[in-house]
């Protein structure tokens, strides 16, 4: 899965979650760029992204992601690799 593939699928997820077909995301996109993106919508977004790519984010990543690019990097690193890391608060 290339970075472009991920961004394409992510765009769909974002449009779905924020219910806005005009959303276009890039690596630099942050919560400030999308009006609807607040801490509660973030829960929905994370859930939708995890479902789309069948992976789980770690707690550190959820609160630490700076922009969409970082999100895509985490997805690329984890999605489809088949190894399901055990998630935990104490996992680094």
């Amino acid at each position: 899965m290339t970075h472009e593939d991920i961004m394409e699928r992510l765009t769909e997820v974002f449009r779905e979650v924020f219910d806005d077909d005009s959303i276009n995301i890039n690596n630099r996109t942050t919560a400030n760029d999308i009006e609807e993106w607040d801490s509660l919508e973030h829960i929905n977004l994370i859930e939708a992204v995890e479902k789309e790519f069948s992976m789980r984010f770690q707690m550190r990543e959820v609160s630490g992601m700076k922009d969409v690019g970082e999100m895509a990097d985490i997805i690329a690193e984890r999605a489809g690799s088949g190894t399901k890391k055990k998630k935990g608060f104490f996992k680094k």
Partner: peptide, 19 residues
């Protein structure tokens, strides 16, 4: 609020029901 958002909200103890 941001303290709880960052350090409690996503605590991975609820599995699929974490929302």
């Amino acid at each position: 609020g941001t303290f709880f958002r960052d350090y409690v909200l996503y605590m991975p103890i609820f599995g699929k029901r974490r929302k």
